[in-house]
Structures are given as structure tokens and as C-alpha cells.
């Protein structure tokens, strides 16, 4: 039984170009409800761009995006993004607001909750990531790991159906990575549908249900973690794995 009202997510034949730079060349990605898909690949392979196209921060040139089996390309993109939480490499907390205000902002302005109720819900989310005691601090006074946990709480507060993680631990000091990865693993176990772009091969291998390897704007190989990590079939994946492992 899932703790979250998750949904499935599908990208079909997604294309995107910036001028003559063809960044995504027909990507297919399917994430079953309550499962975690990790996306790995060398930098510049289009992983982060894929996330931004799937929540329509960038509109795809071609292809379709399905949330729970229904195309969302015609929906209001702002409403779509309320259903998909996103966590960034650089945390991107709002520095002019306190920690609890960061989490409560969307609750107040988008879900139109009264101020005290939004704060109560935000505190609850902060408690889940173990940072309730930092509620009234400024983000700048938190460690990177704490900031990222607040960013996760901020995204979770909107009760998203899917969570995106864009290299969420890449900007963290090594000793802080573990805590954030553990939190992400908890979410995965709790039944959240997640797409995780990561350089953490351990996480990809142990936590995710499927692994997608991207290179040069295409999906080169995808499958269950054992298959990807122990029996890579393409030379490009074999080369990538020997570089990073």
C-alpha cells in the first residue's frame, strides 16, 4: 500500500532542439506507478533536459507525455507541474524566505490554504525530513544536505504524483550525500513514482526498479538494474560503466 497518490508517467518519442543542437532525439521513458526509474549517462547526454521536458519547463518539439495514461500536452503546464515535484542539483531554495516559508509558499498561493494551516502542513513535511527544528532559519544557515532535504519537503508538500530528482546529490559534500540518498530511498520504498537523474551508481543499482542509460540524446539501453550493471549489451554502456565504476 502506497503512502503517496502516485501515478505512472510516460514520455513518448520526445524530441527537442536548441537551434541546430538536437538535444533529445526521440526519447521513450515509462515509469510504472510507485516505481523508481533512474537515468544515467555521461554529462551532456540530455538527462537533465529530459526531466525539464517531461514537466514542460521546456516544451518538446515533438512527442507526447502521459500522466496516468492521459496526455498532458494540452493541459495548462502550471497545473501539470503542480502534480510533478522537482528537486534540483543546486537546491534552489528561496533565500529571502525562511525554511518553513519555502515549504508553505506553494501551499498558500497555489493550494490557497490559510496561512496557519499552510504552516502546519509545512511543519509536518519538515518533520518527515527531520528538519522541523530549522523551520524558522534561513536556507543560507543550513548545510547543503539540510537544504536539499528542505527542497524535497517543499516538493512533497504539494502532494505530487511523481517526483523528479535532477542530480540531487551532485553538489553535496561527500559526507552529506548519504542522508539525502537515504531519504530518496525511503520515498521510493513508500511507493512514490520517481525519475532520478543521478551519478550515484549505488543508488541506481540498489534502489531503482529500472535503469535507463542515455547518451547523445537517445536511450541506448534500459532495463532492470541487474541487467544494466551486470550484463550491459552495448559498447557505449560498457564504456560508460567502466569509466564510472
Amino acid at each position: 500500500m502506497s503512502e503517496f497518490a502516485s501515478g505512472s508517467l510516460t514520455g513518448k518519442n520526445l524530441h527537442l532542439s536548441f537551434g541546430s543542437n538536437h538535444v533529445l532525439r526521440g526519447i521513450d521513458l515509462h515509469v510504472e506507478t510507485g516505481t523508481t526509474a533512474s537515468v544515467i549517462g555521461p554529462s551532456g547526454s540530455g538527462k537533465s533536459t529530459l526531466l525539464r521536458v517531461m514537466n514542460r519547463l521546456i516544451e518538446p518539439d515533438q512527442g507526447d507525455i502521459l500522466l496516468d495514461g492521459r496526455s498532458v500536452l494540452k493541459d495548462n503546464p502550471d497545473e501539470l507541474r503542480q502534480r510533478i515535484g522537482m528537486v534540483f542539483q543546486q537546491f534552489n531554495l528561496f533565500p529571502h524566505k525562511t525554511v518553513v516559508e519555502n515549504v508553505a509558499l506553494a501551499l498558500r498561493k497555489l493550494r490557497k490554504l490559510p496561512k496557519d494551516q499552510a504552516r502546519a502542513e509545512a511543519l509536518e513535511q519538515l518533520d518527515l525530513v527531520g528538519l522541523k527544528h530549522k523551520a524558522d532559519s534561513r536556507p543560507a544557515n543550513l548545510s547543503g544536505g539540510q537544504q536539499q532535504r528542505v527542497a524535497i519537503a517543499r516538493a512533497l508538500a504539494m502532494k505530487p504524483e511523481v517526483m523528479f530528482f535532477d542530480e540531487a546529490t551532485s553538489a553535496l559534500d561527500p559526507e552529506l550525500v548519504k542522508g539525502v540518498l537515504a531519504l530518496m530511498a525511503d520515498l521510493a520504498k513508500g511507493g512514490m513514482t520517481m525519475v532520478v537523474v543521478t551519478h550515484e551508481m549505488g543508488f541506481s543499482r540498489n534502489v531503482s526498479d529500472t535503469v535507463t542509460f542515455m547518451d547523445g540524446g537517445v536511450v541506448v539501453e534500459s532495463g532492470p538494474p541487474e541487467q544494466i550493471f551486470t550484463g550491459p549489451r552495448t559498447e557505449r554502456l560498457q564504456g560508460f560503466l567502466s569509466d564510472v565504476l
Binding site: F88, Q90, N92, A155
Partner: peptide, 29 residues
Amino acid sequence: EKGQLEASRALGFSYGSSMRLVVVPQGIR
């Protein structure tokens, strides 16, 4: 930073609301 607008849009705020609530207040400071 561009990430501020991006994070705000990712939460589901429109361009206008993102500017009003997140970007402009920081810029003025």
C-alpha cells in the same frame, strides 16, 4: 540566479507569480 525562476515554475507557479513572489523581491533587495 536562473534556478530561482526554474524552481518556482517547477512548483507550479506561473511566470507572473514567480516573478512577483520569488525573483523580483530578491532583485530589489
